[in-house]
Write a protein that binds this DNA or RNA. Structure first.
Length: 776
RNA sequence: GGGCGGUUAGCUCAGCGGUAGAGCAUCGGUCUUACAAACCGGGGGUCAGUGGUUCGAACCCACUACCGCCCACCA
């Protein structure tokens, strides 16, 4: 008897096979078949694997393994993202522990230090993906700041500049006083907060009364340069044009008429602060109003705010302004109010809309082709409802603020001469040359991280160079990603792909489930609601973690993932039990191989009901699994295989053929039964392999086999003529019959040793003979 | 203010036009030599509510109620 452990031991199996797969080059594209390509969403270099990643990359590996078995020339390109703000924040935090700030180091040394950090820890998350079993081509690993990638980013910037799509502009942008940088509209989160609405009274200069304005941000009144009312508002018709003396400041400002003021709101009059509110900025442009910046980058009142307020935090200033106005009797009333508040998506600081000079990309023209390809169905979303989400956003797209006031990132390739002329170049050397001896200095800002990741699919394949990889593997097949980056990332990849390669970057976008904790909250490390996937791999094995996630990954539906309690995670445990079931079924087959282990042992068809039935079920399983994978219904594939393997194969087929398979004497019938059970097992393993790569490989290698690895075996296809609905119906009858007998035995408490007399009222010959031949 | 999901057994979720399913939990029974991480049997559901379409609805349509997410410059 072969010595095989009674329980599946994932640790040793995983440690054994992964290095073999990798060193033998199985993760590389093979053959000359059609290509199937995935460029993975690059995790942040600072990241470590969380459960959402585990799902995301398990999905991609399952797809890649499946397509590889189907004979495609497959490639999955891994990599990481330099993650500007996130990485800079981590390194700054490190510095703070040493009592330093980045300014103590200076830009150059800080960037050096960040590179050191990235070189040291940047590979951690990729190592973790190996633990998961991901069959990615590690030799092609990319980083959004590696040498070739910089080339791609510079090329993009320069081309867009030359084509008039990039411009510099002074306008009100979202400023984060926490991260000390501008951020784009989509990096802002909105939240309603309970606060106050203040009604402030502004007197007219001529002493003829006053006008009341409503505001949630009294401190910005120090920067008011007008008050606006709706032109059709009867109450103010005769007052428009009057001069107001701004309280506390003394500035004379006009009462203007503008549609932007809504008569229904508050008193119908709105204060206008062009430097600190986007709407006010636009109104200011229409009326040529001065723009007074009263809050600085750190969220403190500026000198322009006046001596009494300068240096105060914006929220302290709010209190002081209110006190001062109240002392003058100018606070008309204060009411409770739910204030829509803008927060930085990264650090949750309240955003300060700030007048500032930044670089922008004109999006309208870039968006149109990206809208068209989706409408034409050249790029499809799964689930398809996200197509609407995408289109709605794209059709209302606004210009993209791409400059960031950070040190870690792609520095903007724009130099200015002393006379204020811009030189845009792909490199420092090129800029010097273009400057023709004039003294130049490079823009201090870096690009938004998403500017570089927008180029990911073609850039990782070599663009802007016309590489062989680019020619072979682009456009890619599918993008597997989370729904919260459809705007930030997916849309931009489609836009840049079309712009620079004239091709779509991928034909399918598969939006996978969000992993929530047991209370339905988003899994998050900071909330302490996370589960560590590596601990789960340690405890239950990689296959178990993968299967537990994949079998729940109904397209686009959220997954609630329980936390570890009393050292147990029930969902992964379920998958672990399944792995163990597979192990033991294989063990039974291997213990009873006999001459079936010999190469000359041949598959012999059988007329027996159970044999015809299991083949029919297997055929249906192959068909259903393949179709489910085709439609990104990994959960359905998982469930189908689980049911087939456990219920059909283990509970019925093995049990019914046990007496033959385990017979002590190997008659031709016994050998036939052994060959058949081996066949069903081996085929099942191939079907399970994309979801559970390790255990299927380990068992497959122990079985009689040809070829080097199950990874490289053919994906099963249904065999014509095996459908056999008759066998499935008869087997259904037999199962019902046996269940009924067991039920009766259980009710009457008949011990399993004692035999019962069965009066069969069933005419079906096949059922009768099967019952008679398995009377035990 | 717009839009999108969800509401199915105690829990977590499949099913999305043809006699209600899985895992866990629960109850009863099994050391039946592949597996007690297992095996056998059982109990448990007016499929959120109301109305409609249909021979037939958890599944399609309309409305309602909760829960969640996304978008939006109403001070």
């Amino acid at each position: 008897m072969i010595e095989i452990p009674k329980a599946y031991e994932p640790q040793s199996v995983e440690a054994k096979w992964y290095p073999i797969w990798e060193s033998r080059g199985y993760f590389k594209p093979r053959g000359e078949g059609r290509t199937y390509t995935i460029t993975i969403p690059p995790p942040n270099v600072t990241g470590s694997l969380h459960i959402g990643h585990a799902l995301c990359y398990s999905l991609q590996d399952a797809l890649i393994r499946w397509k590889r078995m189907q004979g495609y020339k497959t490639l999955c390109v891994p990599g990481t993202d330099h993650a500007g703000i996130a990485t800079q924040n981590v390194v700054e935090k490190e510095l703070r522990k040493e009592g330093l700030t980045r300014h103590d180091l200076g830009r150059e040394r800080f960037v050096e230090r960040t590179w050191e950090f990235v070189n040291k820890y940047g590979g951690v998350i990729l190592e973790q993906l190996r633990r998961l079993g991901c069959s990615f081509d590690w030799d092609r690993t990319r980083f959004t700041r590696d040498e070739g990638y910089v080339e791609a980013v510079m090329e993009c910037f320069v081309r867009w500049w030359e084509d008039g799509l990039i411009y510099r502009g002074k306008r009100v942008i979202n400023w984060c006083p926490g991260c000390l940088t501008a951020i784009s509209d989509i990096e802002v989160e909105h939240e309603d907060r309970a606060a106050k609405l203040y009604h402030l009274r502004y007197p007219f200069k001529d002493g003829s009364g006053s006008v009341v304005v409503a505001t949630t941000r009294p401190e910005t009144m120090l920067g008011d340069t007008a008050v606006a009312v709706n032109p059709s508002d009867e109450r103010y018709k005769d007052l428009v044009g009057k001069t107001i003396v701004l309280p506390l400041v003394g500035r004379e400002i006009p009462l203007i008429a503008d549609d932007y003021a809504k008569s229904e709101f508050g008193s119908g009059a709105v204060k206008v602060t062009p430097a600190h509110d986007l709407n006010d900025f636009e109104a200011g442009m229409r009326h040529n109003l001065p723009k007074v910046i009263v809050i600085d980058e750190r969220g403190k009142m500026s000198a322009e705010a006046g001596e009494r307020y300068a240096g105060l935090d914006r929220f302290e200033a709010r209190e002081r302004v209110l006190e001062d106005l109240a002392a003058l009797g100018l606070v008309d009333k204060t009411e409770d109010y739910s204030v829509p508040t803008a927060l930085c998506a990264r650090c949750h600081t309240i955003i300060e809309p700030l007048l500032s000079e930044q670089w922008f990309v004109r999006m309208k023209d870039l968006a149109q082709p990206a809208i068209d390809v989706v409408k034409q169905g050249r790029v499809s979303f799964y689930p398809d409802r996200y197509q609407r989400t995408y289109l709605d956003w794209m059709e209302n797209i606004r210009d993209w603020t791409i400059s960031r006031q950070l040190w870690w990132g792609h520095r903007i390739p724009v130099w200015s001469t002393e006379d204020g002329e811009y030189i845009v170049a792909r490199s420092d050397a090129e800029a010097q040359q273009k400057a023709n001896g004039k003294k130049i200095s490079q823009d201090e800002d870096v690009l938004d991280t998403w500017f570089s990741s927008a180029l990911w699919p073609h850039a990782v394949l070599g663009w802007p160079r016309q590489t062989e990889d680019l020619a072979t593997f682009y456009p890619t097949s599918v993008l597997v990603t989370a729904r919260d980056i459809i705007y930030l990332w997916v849309s931009r990849m489609i836009m840049t792909g079309l712009y620079f390669t004239k091709e779509i970057p991928f034909s399918d976008v598969y939006i996978y489930a969000t992993v929530l904790d047991e209370q339905g909250r988003r899994m998050s490390k900071s909330l302490g609601t996370g589960v560590d996937p590596l601990e789960l791999i340690e405890q239950y094995g990689s296959d178990a973690l993968r299967f537990s996630l994949l079998v729940r990954a109904a397209r686009g539906q959220d997954i609630r993932f329980a936390k570890v309690e009393n050292g147990r995670q029930p969902q992964v445990e379920e998958a672990r039990n399944f792995a163990n079931k597979i192990w033991n079924a294989a063990r039974f087959v291997m213990m009873n191989l006999g001459d079936a282990s010999k190469a000359e042992a041949k598959w012999v068809p059988s007329d027996e009901l159970a044999d015809r039935w299991i083949l029919a079920e297997l055929n249906a399983t192959i068909d259903q699994t393949t179709r489910a994978l085709d439609e990104y219904k990994l959960n359905e594939a998982g469930q189908t295989l689980y049911h087939f393997f456990w219920d059909d194969f283990c509970d019925w087929y093995i049990e019914l053929s046990k007496s033959q398979v385990a017979a002590s004497e190997e008659t031709p019938e016994v050998l036939g039964a052994r060959c058949r059970i081996l066949y069903v097992l081996e085929t099942s393993l191939r079907l399970l392999h994309p979801l559970m790569p390790y255990i299927t490989e380990d068992i497959w290698q122990r079985l009689p086999h040809e070829g080097e690895s199950i990874m490289l075996q053919e994906w099963p296809t249904p065999e014509a003529g095996r459908e056999d609905q008759g066998a499935r119906d008869q087997m259904g009858t037999l199962i019902a019959l046996i269940t009924k007998v067991r039920n009766i035995r259980s009710i009457f408490n008949i011990p399993s040793q004692s035999r019962v007399k069965l009066h069969l009222g069933i005419a079906d010959q096949a059922v009768r003979s099967l019952v008679l031949s398995n009377s035990d």
